[in-house]
């Protein structure tokens, strides 16, 4: 691939930023951060070493950037497509996102302040308080790079088009047959992801965002990272779980905190003629989904859907069938299932 040589200053900046990785130490984000050690960490580092500077910069500077801008986000969920226009203010681990007019979630506001997330829902005057997701999306890219080390995925780079007037580098992750899994367009001098696309196994684009405005020198106030709405009902992930379980008519079974998995989202979903309680967890930067429902399931058919990194584990508890799905080995999923209460 052709790639423009980065400036010397950029190289020096990266050398400083990547020094802890090269020394096998954890970065400032802790053991789950991009700089993790061990065989997987080394595999990641070896792949990263062969990639151009903007990709290295993306990993090194994630959670440390300072900018404001607007991006259009599109994704598919439960068969429906959603489109949001997000106005962002980002200052390291603090961020504010407002969903502008024309968005599916118009009026909602999200503030991340280090570990704490506050999400305001104006339609029912409710504030959800939870854990800031921080670096899950970058962790998924890191996993892809690790998987490329053993040939399960292919990682390629190329010069990308200008986006919001900025030069970009395209990072593409594909399966061994060349089918795209993810594409990320990285701003060359900051490592900011300006565009991202995610595909399912059928090759359909199921999620994407693209910046339409970017300001690398924004005026930011501490007030930007506060939501203070009098009279709003404050709820947390357990409240959301109970509400979703009521809606599904299911007595909820959830992974306890001892499992290390953090509950992020709960939904009542109708699949076929069954009510399904869906819980989404985050663990070691990976997303897990716990499905709970009445009745049996064809595990052979489900196993046939296990492609790539995604595995499943099924058990019965409390008169319900439970299926845990995630990018983990089945024995690891089985261990987590023991924490279901």
């Amino acid at each position: 691939m052709e790639y423009q040589r980065p400036r010397i200053a950029l190289g020096l900046l990266m050398a400083v930023a990547l020094a802890p990785m090269a020394m096998g130490q954890h970065g400032p984000r802790g053991p789950q951060g991009p700089a993790g050690a061990g065989p997987k960490g080394r595999a990641f580092q070896e792949v990263l070493d062969r990639l151009p500077a903007p990709v290295k910069l993306m990993f090194a500077r994630f959670g440390k950037q300072r900018y404001s801008g607007q991006r259009v986000v599109e994704f598919r969920l439960d068969g429906e497509r959603y489109k949001n226009i997000e106005n962002l203010i980002v200052d390291g681990l603090r961020s504010r996102i407002e969903f502008a007019a024309g968005s599916s979630w118009y009026g909602q506001v999200i503030v991340d302040n280090r570990n704490r997330r506050t999400h305001f829902f104006p339609d029912r005057n409710e504030i959800f308080v939870g854990v800031s997701p921080r670096d899950e999306s970058i962790m998924r890219l890191r996993q892809f790079l690790q998987s490329s080390a053993n040939g399960r995925l292919k990682v390629t780079t190329d010069n990308g088009p200008d986006i919001v007037g900025r030069k970009t580098t395209l990072l593409q992750v594909a399966d061994p047959n060349g089918n795209p899994v993810q594409r990320v367009w990285i701003e060359n001098t900051t490592g900011i992801q300006l565009k991202r696309e995610i595909f399912d196994r059928a090759g359909s684009k199921i999620g994407a965002f693209e910046f339409t405005r970017l300001n690398l020198d924004p005026k930011i106030s501490d007030e930007d990272f506060v939501i203070n709405r009098r009279g709003a009902k404050v709820v947390d992930s357990q409240d959301r779980l109970r509400a979703a379980a009521r809606e599904a008519g299911i007595t909820p079974i959830a992974l306890t905190q001892d499992s290390g998995a953090l509950l992020q989202n709960s939904r009542a979903v109708k699949i076929g003629d069954r009510n399904v309680l869906t819980q989404t967890y985050i663990l070691e930067g990976r997303r897990l989904t716990l499905f709970q429902f009445k009745g049996n399931i064809d595990m052979k058919r489900l196993a046939r859907q296990e492609k790539g990194l995604i595995k499943t584990y099924r058990w019965e508890q409390g008169g319900y069938s439970l299926v845990l799905v995630g990018e983990m080995m089945p024995d690891r999923l089985a261990q987590l299932a023991k924490f279901a209460k």
Binding site: D78, I271, V325
Partner: peptide
């Protein structure tokens, strides 16, 4: 049913990767 379970996981993971919101309160919205 089985395929839709898997598709639900894939879609929600993708939605969370690209969206700032992980509290995907779709029905309410």
């Amino acid at each position: 049913f089985e395929d839709q379970l898997m598709q639900s996981h894939v879609e929600s993971a993708a939605a969370m990767d690209v969206s700032s919101a992980y509290a995907l309160d779709v029905v309410s919205s």
